[in-house]
């Protein structure tokens, strides 16, 4: 690693943030905000909640940078903070909001798979079915595919054992396969 690189890697930026360097946290914001925002939006199914939570994640980084010990990547650490704050935000949502969300999900789930299959492309169909997975399954799918996290890193972000990550991934993909089969697309498993 060159000196120039080390001055700008995420870990070094976090150390600078701990010293009160606002330019460093703005650079980290540039690098990670969009992914954190998307992670929270997918978890909470709400972009307005994600907007507040993602901002709060970086304010938390500002306050807690001195506690970062470099045992994981900064991006993994931020995802862990984001998950915690997203769960807190979900707990604060009113029952009315949750009812709206449930109604929306029921409407989605009630779509006739055969009808849907006729009017949507294969890729759109998979995307829709991934979106319909329960949150705990959709999150592991996103963390692996979109965020490129390993089994161990997902365990760290979600605060669950590695074996549980694998189990959730198994059921996520199994449910997805079954939903695809119901929509007339048999991929041979499960």
């Amino acid at each position: 690693m060159t000196n120039t690189g080390s001055m700008h890697n995420d870990g070094e930026l976090v150390r600078r943030v701990a010293d009160g360097d606002k330019a460093a946290i703005r650079l980290l914001f540039h690098r990670h905000h969009a992914r954190i925002f998307r992670f929270v939006a997918r978890m909470t199914r709400s972009e307005s909640v994600a907007d507040d939570v993602a901002n709060d994640v970086f304010l938390e980084l500002w306050r807690q940078a001195g506690k970062f010990e470099g045992r994981s990547e900064v991006s993994t650490w931020l995802l862990g903070i984001a998950r915690f704050k997203a769960l807190s935000a979900l707990r604060k949502r009113t029952e009315d909001e949750l009812d709206d969300e449930r109604a929306e999900n029921v409407a989605d789930a009630s779509d006739d798979p055969e009808t849907m299959a006729m009017k949507e492309s294969k890729s759109v169909r998979i995307r829709r079915l991934v979106d319909m997975l329960p949150t705990e399954h959709r999150v592991v799918i996103d963390l692996a595919y979109y965020h490129g996290r390993s089994v161990a890193e997902i365990g760290e972000v979600l605060a669950i054992p590695v074996a549980t990550v694998k189990t959730r991934m198994f059921y996520a993909r199994k449910k997805l396969g079954e939903a695809l089969q119901a929509a007339g697309q048999d991929r041979g498993w499960p």
């Binding site: 939006a41 993602a54 294969k122 799918i141 996103d142 595919y145």
Partner: peptide
Amino acid sequence: AEAEFAASMVANEAIRP
């Protein structure tokens, strides 16, 4: 799985801060 990968990427990238 490659199709799932693409679906996750597209679904996430469609969300714009």
